[in-house]
Structure formats: C-alpha cells, structure tokens
Design a protein around this nucleic acid. Structure first.
Length: 912
RNA sequence: GCCCAUGUGGCGGAAUUGGUAGACGCAGCAGACUCAAAAUCUGCCAUUCGCAAGGGUGUGAAGGUUCGAUUCCUUUCGUGGGCACCA
C-alpha cells in the first residue's frame, strides 16, 4: 500500500469539516488558550508561499496546545478594507466589494488546502457592516473620551466638562467656560478628545486632484502620471496616541515580545527628556514686541556653545522674522522644501541645504547675537520645530556651520578638535560661565534649574511619536459616524450604527481633494464626514471580535473576553512592529480604561515570522532588438534587464522554449548562449506578482501534499528569519514522510506494524524525540523539530522497528506538523477516535540515563582525541586517565601540563 | 541618514550557559538492485598538505577578552526590513 497523500488529505479534510472538529466553544471546562495570526489583506494576487509561513507555525502551536488539553481559540479573518482594492476599482470600474469578495474566496480556498485548524464559524471581515459597526462604535468611544493625566487613563468627556464647569481649565475660569460660545466650547473639548479633528498636512497632487499615500509618491512625483506632489493642509481626524506614550512604554515590560521588537517600539515612541527655552528676537520694525522662539533641546548644558538657531521651514515665525533683504531667497527655499518628503529631508544629510532669514536672536545667558536659519533637516512635527545649534557637540550642526561658514564656538577645549563634532557628554565645560568645570552630563540638571529659575523655559519630556492620522480621502474604508454642523462635529447615535458605506459608481476624488463620498449628494446633504477611516482601524481590535463574532448587542461580551483573556500567542511579520501593534495596544488600553474589557495589553506573547522573499531571475535583451544575451556576456552589449518568470528557470538556466512561448513578443526571440546555455541574472527581493518571482502553494500541495508542504516550510529555517524561497529541497521532506509510511506499510506486503514490546533502544529513541519535539515546539524552533523527526524515523528504520507502542506516540508528536498522514496512520493502528484529541506522550527521563561519555580531549583548546570516561568520574580520576592517554602524552612531549580544565559532562582541556 | 535584524560548506541551515563547528536536508560523486528507468538502499562529500597515519587553515573583515569564541567586547563592510496615508 502506497502513501497516497491526495486521497488521504481529501478524506480527512472532509471528515474534519463534517465533524466540525475545529469548532471552539466559549464554554469549556478546559483552560483557554488563544493563538492568533495577523489576518491578511486579501490581495488580488492570491496566496503565495510567504503567507503560510506564519499560519503553519501558529497552526502547529494550536494543535500542540489542544493535545496538551487546552481549549484553543484559533480563528482567521480578513482585513478587507484598503487601498489596493480601490485603485483596482479606479482602473477597472469593478466595485471593491465585489473584488474583495472574490479575493477572499480564493484565499479561503487556498488556505483550506493546507489543512489549517481554523474555526471558520468565527471568520470576520473588516469591510462587513456587521463588523465595522463596532469599529465605528469604538471610534465614538474615543471621540467621547479624554485622557485624564491625573488618573492616567481615559475617561468620559463628561468628566472634563464637569471640571471646566466647576474649576475652569488651564487658561480660563469656570465663569469663562460658561460664557464661551458653543463653538468655542466644542473647540476646546476637541483639543482633549482621544479621537479629534485638526489640520494636518497631506500629499496633495494637483494634477490628479487627490491626496496620495506615501506609497503612491515616488521621488516627489505621483506614481501614476509622474505629476508634482506638494504638502497641503487639510482637516483631518487624529487619535491622541501621544497621551498613551508613557503607558505604551510601561506596558512593554509586561509582555513577551522580542527585545528587538520592544526596542523598535521604544525608539518609535522616542521619549526624551530635556527642556524648552525661549530665545528673544528683537522686532526690527521698531515695535517693542519682541518675538520669542521656543526651542527644544536635550542638551541645555551646551547653551554657551550655541552659534545659530534653525527653524523648520514650516515654522510659524519664519514669515514674520525674515528680513526684506532675505525674503527672496527664503521664498525660493520654501518652494524647494515643499516638494520634499520628510524621508528625503532626513536621509540626504550629505546634501546640506538651508537659508538665512536675516534675523538674529539673543542668547539669554550671554546676550550674544545668533543668526536664525531655516533648514529642511529640522522637522516641524518634532519638539517645537526649532533647535539651537551647537556645532562643537552635534555633527549635523557642525557640518551645517562648516558649509555655511558660520563661526564655531568651542566650549569643551581640547575635546573638540575642529574637524568633527564631539557628541559625548563626558567633556568638561569651559567658557560657559556658571557651568564652567562641570562634566557635561552633570551640567544638564544645573542648566535646567537655572533656566527654570530665570523663567525663560522649563523642563520638558518629549516624544518622537506623533498623534496618529486617522483620516483618508478614500472610498474603501469605514465611514465616520460624524456629521458636521456649523463647524461642530456631532456624533451619530450609537443605535444608528452601522453607518453604511454608500454604493458609488465612480471612485474619483471629490472636490478640493475630499474623499469620493463628497460626490454623493445624499451624503453631503446629511453633512456626514466625507473622509473614511484608515486601514488600521479595523485591525486595531479584531482579536476581540473573534471571541464573540456574532454578538449583535456589543462588540464583545465582557464575560467572553474575561474567559479568553489576552491573546496568548500572536504571530506575524516584523513589518507591523510599530504601526499596527502600537495602535491595537492603544485601543486595548482605551477599552480597558472605559471598563469594556479586563486587560490592557492585547498580546501576551508575540512571535515574529521572517519574510519569505522571492528570488528573481533576469534576462538581458539587447537594446532595440529581440535578441537576448546570457548573463555572463551581457556586458559586451547595451541591454535592458527584464524580469523573467522564475517558473521558466531551472537554477539559473533559462528554458528558452518556455520563455519563447510566454508572450507573443518573445515568440521569435533569439538567444546568445554561453557554453550552450542561457544563464539568468539573480536578485533577492520582495515576492510580488509584478516581479514574476511568486511561487504558488497550490502547485506544491498538489504535487507533494499539504503535509509535505507544511513541514517543508517549517524546515526552511528559523521562523523569525527572512529567507528567499527555494523549492529545491522539498523532495527531502516528502521522502521523509514516505519513509515514515513504510514503518507502517510495505508497498508489496501491506501492513507491517506489529504489537510487539519495545526494546530499551527503541524507547530511548522515542523519549529523546518526545523531549526534543516538546521543547522545540514550545520555542517555535520548528526547523530543528522537523530535523528531529527525520532522525527518529531514520533510527527506527535502521532498527526495523514497526512496533505500535512506539509508532502511535510518534504519530501524536507529529500530528501538529503533518495532521493528515498522522490521522490516517492513527486509524490504521486501530484507533476509532480522532488523533486531534489524543493525549500528548509523557517524557520519561529514565530511558535516557547514560553511565559514561566520550569526552572530547583538547590540548591548548584544540581537539586531539576522545576518551570514553564514566560520568561519575571526578577531576583527579579524569586527570589520571587523560594523562596516561597515548595521544595526550605525544602532545605533552614529556612536559608536565600547566593546568587541566575539566568540565563535568562536557570536555577536558589540557594546557601545556 | 536613523532604528531593528542578519552574515557559518556548492545551497537551506545545526551547534543548551563561552566547551567536539558543519546535525538534518538539498545538490553532487561512487556503488547495489533493475533488461532499463523510477523508487529504494549503501558509501563519500568545508578547504589544503599527505599514499596513509596525521597535520595546517576555516563561522563577512580587522582587533580584543579567555585555558577555550560561531557565541562576549570594539571597529568595519555587505544584505534584508521599518521610518508615520501599503497592509
């Protein structure tokens, strides 16, 4: 009987489906365990081999936990709002709802073939009204809440109103508050709401009449059409995530994420401590009102080394302080900056740009006049948008000063050599008045105290993180349940939700860059907000909905979320390190503060999967011809590099016949070969349809079966590591499964397994495997687990062990990895119930006890021989054995050893 | 530019806390079985010197700590991911 994986996999997939084997109840005596995948965006390209990497890992873990006696929640759904579907709609006229529907069907079909244990009865789609009704509801909670710094948590906006009514606010009294107009009151409240509206900059493309995503902007022009793109201020919604900055930092101490992941989040939040300080700018028009420029610095200790101030080009005061003489150049510079993205502005430090405003500020400590410049390396969004530049202590300031020939003041003596800045805090200050003689790091505190006592500034904690933009001028997203009346945002009634996305025929932008919803008359008449929510809205809370997916009275019953609790293990790519993970952490904290859930961190443990990259192949067409030249000869010609479908290439050798048949253009292609072959160029890059480097899992499942595919993906390498896909090697895993099969069945003789008693040697193999698989599975070290299965089956085959007592335990260990073949063989062994709920084998250490070990013997750290020594032997005994050894004596050359290092159970090193 | 990760045979990778570098698999080579092929099985497989025994070198590069470094430290180069409107 042969291993017919096609039949076996179909049989058990149908069987599990019919018996609802993967349906999970919210009511169980077993302890709960929640294993979650980052749900996919259902792109039109379908699933490629990169997607299942994390899904297989989580599937293995879920199945393993189920064997260990847990009630495992393992759901899947779709993040189905998003830009690509809309772009596709603009190009083809097909409604995003229709294409999304179709793409999801394809995804589900592909996922099912791999044999995942998802409870599909809990599937969610963020673009369904039943789902986004609750996204809108949570948005309203954010809108109706503020962050109370006293209680350090979100509270109803009503408590703030009460506070204003009884004791007023920062700069107004209770009486003032009551006298304010309704609009003014609402404006003030808006400055505290967790979801708020304000003006912010967007990428605006005049030619296309629309706002563009950063992705759609390439080198400062639109990807479509290559039109210029500038910054434009528009009214936008934001989430006040900065109020949660400290709690987002603290929360990292309570979760099990990798250190690098925590580091990335900490850096993103970017907490820094320093101070704000005012620099006066005498008003040149003779008015006595001087301007004040507020700078933020983390290095107030360097105050006597300030040689110039730099403002962000967008800074409010730029226009007012610029002198007439400089106005022309400043305007020119502003135009240049408008065309540059933040990224470009920070990245190209080699190219130093800036412009002098003509104005001078006064250093409050020594009265020195310092020139004020504007430069693109200062960003308006961070700090106060103005910095004090200290060239001797900051390399960027140093290069700027050098480039524009601004004289440099040295405040650290010979710690500064005039050729580069010294950014350390370990130098002793000189020429710094009251700070003279202090170490810089100690001077920071002294300087801040002085600044505060002089009343020219104050201590200030700053965050790099900015409030999160929450508006998109798009169609395919959640509508805001907000109407605008006389400039006041009015929340929809919660009972009126969902506010359904209206059907449109055209997806073009509305007037003035508004979203497509602005083109719908009824929508405008109702005064509804015309932008929609961003992609991360739906994904910020979906893990809660899986717990209680069909509840129509609340987003998730508190009793249910209390039962499941936090996601125990969350698996997904590092590309979400900062965006999605921070947003969902914030939403969870808000829902916790408001009492809707009982935990304030969503994910207890995070496992990052690496990205599977594509390995692209290139051919080289000689310019203006239909002739293709092999890789090694391409430098002799002028060529165009073209992606070629990786499926036409064996290694790097092109199948020229298949290539010619690929596209009509290539039908008459001619080839210049090297050594009779056409060789392709190779590059590792993102797996993408447009690069023709995608590999479809369906083909592999068809050819080798789902079990082989699952194990091969895990065998590729550590789960968290990125690696290019290579199908070579899958044969080895397939051979392993066939070898396993032959322990039970012979192709000719049929059944070969028996009920004999196991020998010690066989039990040793089994228990070593149990131990290894259990710890590897817990640690997500699946590549070594697969290897351990191979070793086990190799050894059992060598011993000709066909014993049921050994094999049935092996099957349970293997089930999470290769469920179909395990279930089939399990039943062949005579079991009537499913292997899905078998009991995990228990490891017995007694089978592995050894009495002696072959110790490696090194001379001066170099391995020279091995000696079998009892594990009970102590140092003196071991020394005796080692020194009498022939090989050791040869290396000693008659000398006595200096030292003998003996690590029990490990090794011996003789130092000569 | 900044942040994070990463670099080991022809290839994917393994190596517990600093303790035998190259497990397992792919590819390759030689052989067995076969009319033949597939499948399967056996052996070899970092590099270099050597008939062999045995020795030298070797974990991106250069230094350092240590009896001992793929592992720890410093410097440096390459590659991948992220950088706020892709998801």
């Amino acid at each position: 009987m042969e291993y017919n994986f096609i039949e076996i996999e179909k049989k058990w997939q149908n069987n599990w489906k019919a018996s609802k084997a993967y349906q999970v109840s919210n009511d169980s005596s077993k302890p709960p365990f929640y294993v979650l995948d980052m749900f996919p965006y259902p792109s039109g390209a379908g699933l490629h081999v990169g997607h299942p990497l994390g899904y297989i890992a989580s599937d293995i873990y879920s199945r393993y936990k189920r064997l260990k006696g847990f009630n495992v929640l393992h759901p899947m759904g779709f993040d189905s709002f998003g830009l690509p579907a809309e772009q596709y709609a603009i190009e083809t006229g097909q409604h995003p709802a229709a294409t999304t529907q179709k793409n999801i069907a394809t995804f589900k079909d592909q996922l099912d073939k791999i044999g995942f244990c998802y409870d599909w009865s809990r599937e969610i789609r963020t673009s369904e009204p039943d789902y986004y009704r609750w996204t809108q509801w949570i948005f309203l909670q954010l809108f109706k809440s503020w962050f109370n710094p006293q209680s350090n948590k979100a509270e109803s906006i009503q408590t703030l109103i009460q506070q204003f009514e009884t004791s007023g606010g920062d700069d107004f009294s209770a009486e003032d508050w009551k006298s304010f107009s309704k609009n003014k009151q609402q404006d003030i409240l808006m400055q505290h709401r967790l979801a708020f509206s304000a003006f912010g900059e967007v990428n605006w493309c005049e030619a296309l009449g629309t706002v563009l995503a950063n992705d759609e902007v390439v080198n400062g022009v639109s990807e479509r059409g290559g039109h210029p793109v500038i910054k434009k201020k528009m009214r936008q919604w934001y989430l006040r995530i900065t109020d949660y900055a400290d709690r987002l930092l603290e929360g990292l101490n309570t979760v099990d994420f990798s250190d690098s992941m925590k580091e990335m989040q900490r850096n993103w939040i970017g907490k820094s401590e320093g101070c704000e300080m005012d620099f006066e700018v005498p008003n040149q028009t003779g008015n006595n009102d001087a301007f004040k420029i507020k700078v933020y610095t983390t290095r107030p200790d360097t105050i006597f080394g300030v040689d110039f101030l730099v403002l962000a080009p967008e800074h409010d005061l730029v226009n007012q302080i610029t002198t007439e003489a400089q106005r022309g150049s400043i305007n020119e510079y502003l135009t240049y900056v408008k065309s540059r993205s933040d990224r470009e502005r920070m990245a190209e430090v080699k190219q130093i740009t800036g412009c002098f405003t003509g104005a001078f500020a006064i250093n409050p400590f020594n009265g020195k006049q310092i020139p004020i410049w504007i430069a693109e390396y200062v960003l308006a969004g961070y700090g106060t948008g103005a910095i004090m530049a200290v060239p001797c202590g900051d390399q960027r300031d140093f290069l700027f000063a050098q480039h524009f020939e601004i004289p440099i003041t040295n405040i650290i003596g010979n710690h500064f050599d005039g050729t580069q800045a010294n950014p350390t805090k370990d130098a002793t200050l000189q020429a710094s008045d009251f700070l003279n003689g202090l170490l810089m790091k100690n001077a920071i505190k002294v300087a801040i105290e002085k600044i505060e006592s002089l009343g020219i500034g104050k201590r200030k904690v700053n965050f790099k993180m900015r409030d999160a933009g929450f508006s998109r001028q798009r169609y395919w997203g959640e509508p805001f349940p907000i109407r605008w009346e006389d400039g006041i945002a009015i929340a929809s009634e919660e009972t009126q939700l969902p506010l359904e996305l209206p059907h449109v025929e055209k997806y073009g932008p509305g007037p003035e860059g508004e979203g497509p919803l602005a083109n719908i008359e009824s929508w405008k008449n109702e005064k509804f907000e015309t932008s929609t929510m961003p992609g991360y809205a739906g994904s910020s809370w979906y893990f809660l909905r899986y717990m209680d997916p069909t509840n129509s009275s609340t987003f998730c019953d508190k009793k249910v979320s209390d039962y499941w609790g936090q996601v125990n293990v969350y698996i997904g790519g590092t590309e979400h390190a900062v965006g999605h993970l921070l947003y969902s952490r914030m939403w969870t904290k808000v829902l916790f503060d408001l009492g809707y859930i009982g935990f304030d961190e969503p994910f207890k443990r995070l496992v990052n999967q690496g990205m599977i990259q594509g390995s692209s192949r290139f051919v080289y067409r000689i310019k203006g011809t239909n002739e293709f030249v092999s890789f090694g000869l391409k430098d002799n010609y002028e060529t165009d590099e073209l992606h070629v479908d990786v499926n036409f290439v064996d290694g790097i050798e092109l199948n020229t016949a298949a290539f010619s048949n690929w596209k009509p253009d290539y039908a008459n292609a001619r080839f210049i070969l090297e050594e009779g072959k056409y060789l392709c160029g190779v590059e590792v890059e993102k797996m993408s349809k447009s690069k023709f480097n995608t590999v479809n899992p369906d083909d592999l499942v068809l050819k080798y079966g789902a079990d082989t595919f699952r194990m091969y993906e895990m065998f590729l390498g550590p789960i968290e590591q990125s690696k290019p896909w290579d199908t070579k090697g899958i044969e080895g895993v397939h051979r392993f499964l066939r070898k396993l099969w032959r322990l039970f069945n012979d192709d000719v003789k049929g059944k070969v397994w028996n009920e004999e008693n196991a020998t010690d040697a066989e039990l040793k193999i089994l228990h070593r495997t149990i131990k290894k698989i259990e710890s590897d599975t817990e640690n997500f070290s699946y590549n070594t687990a697969v290897s351990a299965f191979m070793v086990c089956v190799n050894e059992l085959s060598d011993l000709k062990c066909h014993k049921k007592t050994i094999l049935e335990n092996l099957l349970i260990l293997l089930m999470p990895y290769a469920p179909h073949i395990s279930e089939e063989l399990w039943h062949q062994l005579g079991h009537a119930t499913s292997i899905l709920d078998a009991a995990y084998p228990k490891f017995e250490a007694s089978y592995l006890v050894e009495s002696s070990k072959s110790y490696p013997i090194s001379i001066n750290g170099k391995l020279r021989t091995n000696i079998e020594i009892s594990l009970a032997a102590e140092q003196s005994e071991v020394e005796q054995i080692v020194l009498s050894n022939e090989v050791v004596q040869k290396w000693l050359e008659g000398n006595a050893p200096k030292k003998i290092i003996f690590v029990k159970g490990k090794m011996v090193n003789v130092v000569v």
